[in-house]
Computed example of a mutant assay.
Amino acid sequence: MGIIKINNIKLYAYHGCLEEEAKIGSDYRVDVAIKADLKKSAQSDVLAHTVDYVHLNHIVKQEMAIRSELLEVVAQRILDRFFQELSMIQKAKVSVSKINPPMGGNVEEVVIILTKKR
Rank of each mutant, 00 (worst) to 15 (best):
D52C: 11
I34N: 08
L71E: 02
S87R: 12
D31A: 09
L47T: 00
A33R: 07
K61I: 12
S68D: 14
E21I: 04
V110W: 01
N57A: 15
I112N: 02
L70F: 11
M88T: 06
D45H: 04
A36E: 07
S68L: 01
S97A: 07
I89E: 01
V54E: 12
R67T: 13
K39P: 05
L47G: 04
I78E: 08
I99C: 03
A65D: 12
I34W: 02
L71M: 13
A22C: 11
R29G: 10
E109H: 14
K91W: 12
V110I: 15
K23M: 04
K10E: 14
E19I: 09
V96Y: 04
F82M: 04
E72V: 09
Q76A: 14
L18P: 13
K116I: 04
L56I: 06
I59N: 06
I78K: 10
K117T: 11
E85T: 08
V32A: 02
V107N: 02
I4M: 02
K61D: 12
I59A: 06
P102D: 03
A33F: 00
S87M: 10
S41G: 03
V32H: 00
R29S: 13
G2L: 05
K10W: 00
Y14T: 12
D31C: 15
R77W: 08
K93S: 13
K117C: 07
G25N: 11
Q84T: 13
L38P: 06
R81I: 08
V46E: 09
A42F: 01
I89C: 04
E21G: 05
I59Q: 02
E109N: 14
I89N: 01
H15I: 03
L86Q: 13
K10L: 08
S26I: 00
Y14G: 11
V94W: 00
I24W: 10
K91I: 05
A33L: 05
K116P: 03
I3K: 14
L11T: 00
Y14R: 14
